[in-house]
Amino acid sequence: MSISEEQVRHVAMLARLGLSDDQISSLGQELNSILGHIDQIQKLDLEGVETTAHPMEVVNSMRADVIRPGLSREDALLNAPEREDGAFLIPRIVGGDDAS
C-alpha cells in the first residue's frame, strides 16, 4: 500500500499536527519507504489467528475501592501554560459565527 499526499494531510489532521507543505511532502516519501518494508507482514497467513493486545494474560486487575490521596489542585496546575481561578485556561472552543 502506498499513501498519497492527500492521505498524509488527512492523517496529519487526525493527529492534530499542523504541518507545512514541505513536511507533508517529505513525510509522504518517508512513510511510503517505511510502509514498503512493513507491508511484508501482509505475506503472513494469519487467517483465524486471534489478536494479541497485551503479552500477559491478566484480566480485570482490580484494587480495593478505597479513597486515597491524589494530585493536589496546585500540583495539577503546576505546569499549566495558562490558568485562571484554579482551572486551565484555553482559547475559545466554539467559533463566533459557527452555530455548532
Binding site: 492534530r16 499542523g18 505546569n79 501554560p81 484555553i90 482559547p91
Partner: peptide, 19 residues
C-alpha cells in the same frame, strides 16, 4: 498544549492551539 508543556502563542481557537 492545554495542561502542561509548551503552548503555541496567540492561538485563534483551541484547534489552532492543538495543531
Amino acid at each position: 498544549g492545554v495542561r502542561y508543556g509548551v503552548r503555541a502563542t496567540e492561538a485563534e481557537d483551541v484547534m489552532d492551539l492543538y495543531l
